[in-house]
Amino acid sequence: MTRTDLPTEPAPVTEWVVTGEPIEDIRDRRRRRAAMRKPFTSILRHVLLIAAAALMLYPVIWMVVSSLRPNELIFREPGIILDSFEVSNYTDGWNALSYPFNVYLLNSAIVVIGSIIGNLVSCSLAAYAFARLEFAGKKWWFAIMLVTIMLPIHVVIVPQYILFSQLGWVNTFLPLIVPKLLATDAFFIFLMVQFIRGIPRELDEAARIDGAGHPRIFAQIILPLMVPALATTTIFTFIWTWNDFFSQLIFLTKPSLYTVPLALNAFQDSQSSTDFGQLFAMSVVALLPIFLIFLFGQKYLIKGIATTGIK
């Protein structure tokens, strides 16, 4: 194979696993080369990106500015120039409902953490089976798995509610967490299957020669290599659960168990007054944790095969 004639399909992985030039060396070389042709295009890229970011962010900035305005001025004075600085929306909003806002943050955190653990464990197990093992009816089970995410929640929530109410689970976090432990978020199984299929099979086979069984291959080879998929699952589960209004509305009735979306909704009444100042202030408070987690957690997203290194 001549080198200039690039294969449409990447070369078999064995080639580079076996040739094994130290990865760090190559990477340094590449970085130095990249640094040389930078200045102009780099500035242009930043300008474009900043412009795009401003467009993306306008509504969010508007919300933050409004959260610092007196409530009655929010819709009377358009624009995002702030002429007053009303922190009272935050202090009042924090205590506006039956419990201080930290109660709702904590409740949401419990549901979110439970859901994340559930999804990570159960979905990765199932994904390993679908991606790596041969078993009877595999295609059918996979199809069934996809079908389970095709029904809109509005028609399954009522039977689900009846089921959980018979179990006595309504008004606990169980109906929100236990399904995740049982891999009902099939999206993530599918996501992980796609990632595992991107991991060269030679690695499993090599481990098998060493006498490793499936649990060990799964835990020691596959899991470390699918960190980006696990991180994606974590981030998505976090956001979806943190923002999920409908199922939390249906399953939680005690105000002491209310989560952030339920608390935010309790501010509004379209028929009479909604304190938008406080609503926006608490929305900003609710947005902060997910934003920070994404900001600092994203380095795990990009810890792929390329960075973990393959021995």
């Binding site: 209004f245 509305l249 909704n265 309790a266 379209s270």
Partner: peptide, 12 residues
Amino acid sequence: PQYTDWAGYWDK
């Protein structure tokens, strides 16, 4: 007490 906004109230 169990309370919510208008739209969510009827769903629930």
